[in-house]
């Protein structure tokens, strides 16, 4: 029986029933018996040519492609012509790639004859970086964070972190992996977990996704052991450690470009947005501190996030005009958040 093109159109437009979904799924799951469906999709593709597309811009995808290609080409030819690339690609795209490329150079086997050499990965503000360590452990470094480690891991697997990182540690029975922060040591064999330890903040947080970890203070005393989906919050001001159950994926979403808030108060939201977007976000009204916020953003620009916040919560925001400083630089964006008096009553 011929596949009904209307099902395809409805699915594509997003106005589909369960029956439509199941029909599409059946075709996209099957390797045979879908020639006719493929041809329908092909004619859809051909006809798509004449449809007016939204005015959005896909240049950033081209930037990524150009960058990938130039990396591949340079690597193949052994030349390092970064300058051209620098001129064309925005910082947000180039830094993670450049860093991983430099890391790649670092880990060439012949370099490991210098076991005491340290490598450092710095992640600029507003950017996240994917990293791979000499033992195969992978992870992500969040905005404004630094990770340093001995090249080659000659004397055990020990890394130092300031800021936030997610680790997916390769299991080695005989060699525990330790993450050292300002005041804590996280000791593991092979697991995945997230560590938040920004300088100047009273608390450090560790969230375990899989496996088991042990958290020690800097004298080597055990603070706590964690099981999956547990979070440890250590407050160095009042010297307390609190363990709680969480859904760990909410804390690791940032590695996929997701900004996830789950019942977080506005102070926390402002802090995380500031870090994520490298902007200064100020809460001008104390009453706002009582509100909590629940949302997930995927790769949205700051303006979009603020707009959504203003729609769904009783806040208003304004941006201060930036003036060029004496040395010709623009300061960070500064956003001031206030209460929207018209909407406040709806939220009480």
């Amino acid at each position: 029986m011929a596949f009904d093109i209307n099902i395809l159109k409805r699915f594509f437009e997003g106005n589909y029933s369960r029956k439509d979904y199941i029909a599409i799924r059946e075709k996209l799951f099957s390797e045979e018996d879908n020639r006719e469906f493929r041809e329908l999709m092909l004619s859809h593709w051909v006809e798509f040519d004449s449809i007016r597309l939204p005015d959005d811009n896909v240049d950033h995808i081209l930037d990524k492609l150009q960058h990938k290609i130039s990396l591949e080409e340079n690597r193949a030819a052994g030349r390092y012509r970064f300058i051209q690339v620098f001129q064309r690609v925005a910082a947000i795209l180039i830094f993670p790639l450049l860093l991983s490329f430099l890391a790649y150079l670092y880990f060439q086997p012949e370099k490991s004859e210098f076991p005491e050499a340290y490598a450092e990965i710095q992640c600029p503000m507003g950017v996240r970086t994917k990293f791979t360590l000499p033992d195969g452990t992978t992870g992500f470094l969040n905005s404004g964070s630094t990770l340093s480690y001995p090249v080659g891991f000659g004397k055990g697997r020990q890394v130092e972190l300031t800021g936030e990182a997610f680790f997916d540690v390769v299991h080695h029975e005989k060699s525990p992996f330790t993450v050292k922060t300002g005041k804590l040591n996280v000791k593991v064999l092979g697991t995945s977990f997230n560590v938040i330890s920004y300088p100047g903040e009273a608390t450090e947080e560790i969230i375990l996704q899989t496996g088991k970890i042990e958290v020690l203070d800097n004298t080597g005393k055990t603070v706590a052991e964690l099981n999956p989906d547990q979070r440890l919050t250590v407050n160095h001001d009042d010297r307390t450690a609190k363990r709680s159950m969480v859904i760990s994926s909410q804390y690791t979403g940032w590695t996929e470009g997701k900004l996830i808030f789950r019942n977080e108060d506005m102070t926390q939201v402002a802090k995380r947005l500031s870090r994520w977007y490298n902007a200064e976000i100020v809460i001008a009204d104390k009453r706002l501190e009582d509100f909590t916020f629940y949302a997930t953003f995927v790769d949205e620009p700051l303006d979009e996030v603020l707009k959504l916040l203003a729609i769904t919560t009783p806040i208003a925001y304004s941006e201060e005009i930036r003036e060029v400083s004496k040395d010709g630089l623009y300061p960070k964006r500064k956003i001031v958040i206030t209460i929207n008096p018209k909407k406040i009553n709806q939220f009480k």
């Binding site: 997003g14 798509f48 040519d49 896909v58 996929e256 470009g257």
Partner: peptide, 17 residues
């Protein structure tokens, strides 16, 4: 082709990423 392919894929996958 880039933009066209993006919107074509978006229609079928419903996910920008």
């Amino acid at each position: 082709y880039g933009k066209r392919l993006y919107h074509f894929s978006l229609g079928y996958l419903k996910s920008k990423t």
